[in-house]
Simulated scan of single mutants.
Amino acid sequence: MADEIDLEKQRIRDEVRARRAAMGDAERVAARDGITAQLVSLVEAREARSVSCYLPVASEPDTSGFLGWARDRGLDVLLPSAREDGLLDWIRPSWEGMVQGAHGIPEPLGAFLSPMAVGEVDLMIVPACAVDRTGVRLGWGRGYFDKSLGSMERRPPVFAVVHEADFVDSLPSDLHDVPVTGVVTPSRIEYLDDPAEE
């Protein structure tokens, strides 16, 4: 059964990668602008003063516009740094440049904080391959965010960012998968795990 779940997860990842790779420049810009608007709306609606987010790599939904807005507004932002043990440290960026991190993933210059630091933010914004309507989040297979979310004593609201086609009715899941509070796409915000907030 576990093998079947893993195979189905990989099939979905391959499908999403192919779909994102096929996006044209104009479509990417429109998606980035939509995501920026939705994330700004989410942060303002929740009156968040501190957030964790991510720097987009490859074809991940582009948060660069939102991060520029957050920097200009003086929000306290934490960005992830992958560790060898599979957890995430967090960086409070100085906004003064980038360095190469684990797996060749760019990381910002700034102050390093422990894996527990993210428990203090008002809102977590995480990448995803896909999300379903029950809050199941499918990542890319390394498990960094699942381990981090699963190890937290206090978990802020968690919103996964995906393109429209990656928000689906159902996804395969394992026991270690931690449901997200909501999903953000270029055109909407939907609460999935916290009906009182709708």
Rank of each mutant, 00 (worst) to 15 (best):
R20M: 01
Y144A: 05
L113H: 13
S170C: 04
V180P: 13
V180K: 11
E164I: 00
L171G: 11
A128W: 07
M124Q: 14
V40Q: 10
E164P: 00
W95T: 01
P127L: 03
S81L: 08
E47N: 14
G24Y: 08
L138W: 13
E153S: 09
A21Y: 04
D169T: 02
E190L: 06
V57I: 15
V168R: 15
M152G: 10
G110C: 09
M116N: 07
D76N: 13
D169V: 04
A26H: 05
G119W: 05
E8P: 00
A37E: 13
C129F: 02
A82W: 00
G182A: 04
S151D: 12
R188F: 03
V16C: 09
A18V: 01
A30I: 01
D132K: 07
D72A: 15
G74P: 00
C129S: 11
A128L: 08
L79Y: 12
A45D: 13
S50Y: 06
P186S: 08
V121E: 13
R19V: 07
G143Q: 03
P115M: 04
S59C: 04
R46L: 08
R92Q: 12
D146W: 03
L192A: 04
S151R: 11
Q38P: 04
M152K: 07
E198M: 02
R188Y: 03
V161Q: 06
L79N: 13
V29C: 07
R13D: 05
A82G: 00
S170Q: 08
A21G: 06
W95K: 09
L79H: 07
H163Y: 09
I125A: 05
W69H: 15
C53L: 06
A21M: 04
R133Y: 09
L67R: 10
D3V: 08
E84P: 01
H163V: 01
Y191M: 12
G34W: 06
L39H: 11
L192Q: 02
A82L: 05
V40G: 05
H176Y: 14
D89M: 06
P56D: 07
R83N: 12
A160P: 02
Q38Y: 09
I125P: 01
G68A: 14
K147C: 08
